[in-house]
């Protein structure tokens, strides 16, 4: 394991976040087993106090995990490539982690989705004195903590196993200049034009859907929150493919460079951070809206504040889609205006 300050920062933050989350999870388990809001017995009063403390700990754990993820991405994209021979961006670094790096990022995404849903529930729960969403929030937290543990474990494994002696063939993975162009024509067997079309059409529909939810009189009811969650997660995948396969070319100003990680480099003005940040926001808010709506519907009691949070979630999804689309599409339009043609004809 290399003792780089960034590696220590990620491991330290992960450890801190996990401690906070595990502390909160212990109380969440007790909440699931013993929560009795109708009782004023000593055990219930003590549990209410612990639940309040645990909520603060879990909130802290969420932010620390988010910070660790940001530091990790900064490291993968801008710090660790200098240490791994042959690595020019995050692709080479992930190659040097022998698969656990990509898995760690996947688990991190999963943990953040679940924790963001928990945070949304808890924010609404905290606004009402009776805390009617305590049990579903505890359930969600217990679901998120194992995923966060897997994320931290894989991150540690990836950083500990980072091979800084063996050269990697970074660009061979994504920018194979010797590959015949006809083989580089699409992702998942679909042509690039279709991905761009799906991205544009899906983005428009998602904005319309998010704004519909943002204006709904009772956004927790009906199928719209579920549809929004599914649509945002689906669109995030489509948008990422469209970006890497087609739109990134206008930032790189070169063809067939299907790399998401180079967008995070300073020569491309770190545009990957806002681009993938917007995608992350759309996924987190979209899925969080569904989790909150489901909890509200199942609890069967009026939950003041839930409607406004759901509407805010809808607005944030719309904003995230708009910001991503703007950042991704403007370089293409600028290219077309300057040169009169699209890259690749």
């Amino acid at each position: 394991m290399i003792w780089h300050p960034l590696v220590l920062a990620v491991v330290g933050l992960d450890l801190l976040g996990l401690l906070a989350l595990l502390f909160a999870a212990a109380t969440a388990l007790q909440v699931l087993l013993y929560w009795a809001p109708g009782s004023a017995a000593a055990a219930q009063i003590a549990l209410e106090r612990r639940a309040e403390t645990a909520e603060m700990a879990a909130r802290c754990g969420f932010w620390v995990l988010l910070a660790a993820s940001l530091v990790l991405v900064v490291g993968i994209t801008n710090v660790l490539p200098e240490l791994v021979p042959g690595a020019m961006c995050g692709t080479g670094v992930l190659q040097a982690t022998a698969g656990s790096g990509a898995r760690a990022l996947g688990f991190r995404f999963g943990a953040l989705v679940l924790l963001c849903g928990w945070r949304m529930l808890e924010t609404v729960n905290r606004r009402q004195p009776q805390r009617t969403l305590t049990v579903p929030a505890a359930r969600l937290l217990l679901l998120a903590v194992p995923v966060a543990l897997l994320a931290a474990g894989d991150t540690l494994q990836a950083l500990a196993g980072l091979d800084v002696h063996q050269p990697v063939d970074c660009c061979a993975v994504v920018y194979d200049q010797f590959r015949p162009p006809e083989l580089a024509g699409g992702a998942a067997g679909l042509p690039d034009r279709l991905w761009v079309g799906l991205f544009a059409l899906g983005g428009g529909l998602l904005i319309a859907l998010a704004l519909k939810l943002a204006r709904a009189p009772d956004p927790a009811q009906g199928r719209w929150p579920g549809i929004l969650a599914a649509a945002s997660l689906l669109w995030v995948g489509v948008a990422a493919v469209a970006l890497v396969r087609v739109l990134a070319a206008y930032t790189y100003e070169v063809l067939h460079h299907y790399c998401p990680w180079c967008l995070f480099l300073p020569e491309h003005r770190f545009v990957g951070f806002p681009l993938f940040g917007a995608l992350l926001l759309a996924a987190l808010e979209g899925s969080g809206v569904w989790m909150l709506a489901l909890a509200v519907r199942r609890c069967g009691l009026p939950v003041p504040g839930a409607a406004s949070r759901l509407r805010a979630g809808g607005r944030r999804v719309a904003w995230a889609v708009a910001v991503f689309s703007l950042l991704a599409v403007v370089p293409a339009l600028w290219w077309r205006w300057r040169f009169g043609v699209w890259i690749g004809g």
Partner: peptide, 17 residues
Amino acid sequence: PTAGEVLADGAPVSRWG
């Protein structure tokens, strides 16, 4: 309180956050 509750105008204020 260690147990029991205080209600102000019917609301269990001692158990609020």
